[in-house]
């Protein structure tokens, strides 16, 4: 195609041709990267909840408790995926849009979207583009709530990678957005959510 392409490929081949032998690909087993358990847990969900908290995210398994938390935070207006609206419509304590309005980007205090999986070993929430109703809804508000099914909690990273499928954009979120750029002091909520929540339902 372009001459740059040809130049790069021929330079690579010229560099590699003189090698007497080439390193073979190591055959490694996924168990290599599975880390030591941080405790004893009855279920993957219990492990997920523990690691989620360790990573400074928050765990909820009751809608009412989550709404009470939002009210306590003074975060009563936000965005919600239309497919999840039924879960919250009974509440008069919070209000939300089901279509993300750019003009209100700084007014939305929370965003509720679907999570595609949870990783128990690291307390990670996996978001897939095909299952996220609005990228900005999961990113711009101070509080992001990922709604997960208990059956979607997988034990570790290799298991989560197996679920990638054909999705164009997948995100692992482990904790709130953070920085330690200024004097190494940890500050949560830089560009993305300052509070990351997983709501795990049966």
């Amino acid at each position: 195609m372009s001459s740059d392409r040809e130049k790069i490929f021929s330079a690579i081949r010229a560099a590699l041709d003189p090698l007497p032998e080439r390193t073979a690909k190591p055959d490694w087993d996924p168990s290599l990267v599975i880390c030591n358990p941080s405790g004893e847990f009855d279920s993957l969900t219990a492990q997920f909840a523990d690691k989620l908290t360790f990573a400074s995210s928050r765990f909820f398994d009751q809608v009412d408790a989550l709404i009470a938390f939002l009210v306590k935070e003074g975060s009563t207006y936000g965005y919600c995926d239309p497919a999840l609206a039924a879960l919250f419509e009974g509440s008069e304590a919070i209000a939300f849009d089901t279509e993300f309005d750019h003009a209100k980007i700084n007014d939305y205090a929370f965003g509720i979207t679907k999570g595609s999986a949870g990783i128990a070993e690291s307390g990670t929430i996996m978001l897939k583009d095909t299952q996220t109703s609005a990228r900005l809804g999961a990113l711009a508000p101070w509080i992001h709530i990922a709604v997960l099914k208990e059956a979607d909690i997988v034990p570790n990273i290799p298991a989560a990678i197996e679920r990638f499928g054909d999705d164009p954009s997948i995100i692992f979120a482990t904790g709130p957005s953070k920085t330690a750029d200024v004097e190494g002091i940890l500050i949560e909520g830089v560009h993305g959510p300052g509070i990351q929540i997983a709501l795990v339902l049966p």
Partner: peptide, 24 residues
């Protein structure tokens, strides 16, 4: 790098946004 089990965000991008996705 920083002693984190995982960095907060790991993104896996393989192309333009999904057609049904309003953003991106």
């Amino acid at each position: 790098g920083t002693g984190q089990q995982l960095t907060v965000y790991n993104q896996f991008i393989k192309g333009p946004k999904h057609p049904g996705q309003p953003h991106g």
